[in-house]
Simulated scan of single mutants.
Amino acid sequence: MQHENSSHAHDELDERHGHEEGESIIIKKLAPNEMLAKEMNESGIIAEAVAQGMHPIENGPYYSHMFGMNSRFTTNRGIIKITGKNFDLVQVLQKH
């Protein structure tokens, strides 16, 4: 096993991906509604993530006693604004 070749191979790998030694890689963490809006746009649906807490429908309770298996604990993860469909908004909720 040659250790000197392994470092050379690592340098080649970095150059192929456009990252030179010492260059920082920036990773942007997306909110759940931003990730879903991005996936919708990639699928051909015109979608835009709305900043969390900026729409009036986000202020209400997010559960119902009408359904037996429905969790009472849910978290609002944002709103997605849809263009060109029969509905305008999608609210992203997370069950606990």
Rank of each mutant, 00 (worst) to 15 (best):
K95M: 09
H3Y: 14
I82G: 01
I57C: 04
K85Y: 15
A31L: 05
R72C: 04
E48C: 04
D14A: 12
N70E: 14
S7F: 10
S71W: 02
M69H: 15
F73V: 12
M35Y: 06
L30T: 02
L13N: 02
K95S: 14
K28W: 09
A47Y: 03
H65D: 11
I27P: 00
I46F: 10
S64F: 07
E4S: 11
H8L: 08
M40L: 14
M40H: 03
E15V: 05
A37M: 00
K28M: 04
I57Q: 08
E42N: 14
Q2G: 09
V50I: 15
G60V: 10
E12H: 10
I45N: 04
L93M: 04
F73I: 12
A31R: 08
H10L: 08
H19K: 10
L93D: 01
G44K: 01
H10R: 06
G78Y: 01
D14C: 10
S6R: 05
H17Y: 15
N33G: 01
I79A: 07
G60S: 11
L36H: 01
I27Y: 14
H17V: 11
H96I: 00
G18V: 07
A51Q: 12
H19V: 10
H96M: 03
L93R: 05
A47G: 03
E42M: 09
G84M: 08
T83W: 07
R16T: 09
N70Y: 15
H55G: 06
I25S: 07
G78I: 01
T83A: 04
M69P: 08
E58T: 08
H65F: 13
K28R: 13
R16D: 14
H8M: 04
G84A: 09
L93H: 05
I27K: 05
P32L: 01
K29T: 09
R77W: 04
I27M: 05
G22V: 06
F73Q: 12
F67P: 00
I25R: 10
A9H: 14
D88V: 07
N5W: 09
H10I: 07
V92L: 00
D14H: 13
K95C: 07
N86R: 12
E42R: 08
K28D: 13
H17A: 09
K95I: 11
M69Q: 15
E23L: 03
V90L: 12
R72L: 06
M35G: 09
G84N: 13
P32I: 00
E20F: 13
V92Q: 00
E42P: 03
G53Y: 02
H3M: 07
G84R: 11
S43E: 12
L30G: 01
I25P: 00
G44R: 00
D88L: 06
K29W: 02
Q91C: 01
I27W: 06
A49Y: 00
K38P: 03
L30P: 01
H96D: 13
G18R: 10
H17M: 09
S7H: 08
G53K: 06
G18P: 03
E34V: 00
E21S: 13
E12I: 04
H3V: 05
D14W: 13
L30Q: 03
H3I: 09
K38F: 05
I82D: 02
G22I: 04
V92M: 00
T74W: 01
Y63R: 02
V92A: 00
Y62D: 15
F73L: 11
M40P: 01
H96V: 00
K85T: 15
P61W: 11
K85M: 15
Q52M: 12
A49S: 12
V92I: 09
